[in-house]
Amino acid sequence: MLLKWSSKAHALFTVCVTVVFFLPLYLVLINIFKDSKQVMGDPLGFPTSFTLANIRSVLTRPDHLIYTSMWNSTLITALSVCVVIVSSSMVAYYLVRNDSKKSRLLLVFFLFGLMVPTTIILIPVVKVLIAVHLMSTKTGLIAFYMGYYVPFGIFMYSGFIRTIPRELDEAAAIDGSSPLRTFWRIIFPLLGPCTSSVIIFIGLWVWNDFLNPLIIIGPIKGTTITAGIYRVIGQYSVNWGEMFAMMFLASLPIIFLYLALQRKFVEGITSGSLKG
């Protein structure tokens, strides 16, 4: 009996903590549907007159910011994740399977890239991108992401590939399969859990990235969603309702994915970091 009471108290306490923690997100959700008078006067209460005006005004901006930047973000994230996966899994496979002093050094050389923050290399990266005429293009940003996140991909894949028995490759090779074919037909499908970790990590980083798209894509050829909301937010600083609507819409895809694939998210992130 006492045990039951204490477990109930525990649950109640957990709920309280969670509610406090959730407060900022609650604010966003609740204030989207209020008119600006009520947002300022009573930010915490439920909407007295439910309105969609905030969302509508953000969606009908004359510059179509939400649509174009959402599309750009999706495109950039998807392509960056793809090229990083293709490239880093191949590099990791080669380096793990050709175990020699040289390849171990090369692996360490790649993993050194994990330590480099973007702020440090952004100035020269801009110079490099100008030189190859990729500045202010999506291609330039994707190429940069590929170079920057390949070390992370290699780090994840190299740990995982070690757990896959060599006999598989050897059997395939005896059957006359080329190394490339062996890798893509036999090994890569086995890397599924690792691949999903990589997708989640790099997908989140790229989608939420702010500084690089702000500087690299620039203002002329569209923008990503994070850089986009940063650019226009000045217009909303006195209109919280619309500002929250903007935040909500910008985060909607990622929140939706997170809630749908919650287990995969948490597994991917923990397995990724615990293995490290």
Binding site: V126, M135, G218, P219, G234
Partner: peptide, 22 residues
């Protein structure tokens, strides 16, 4: 093509664009 400065300090933004070759 209209480019809108992220805040009212357009000189700062123009410098940023100059620095990044845009």
């Amino acid at each position: 093509n209209k480019i809108v400065s992220p805040d009212l300090d357009r000189t700062k933004y123009a410098k940023q664009l100059l620095a990044s070759g845009q």
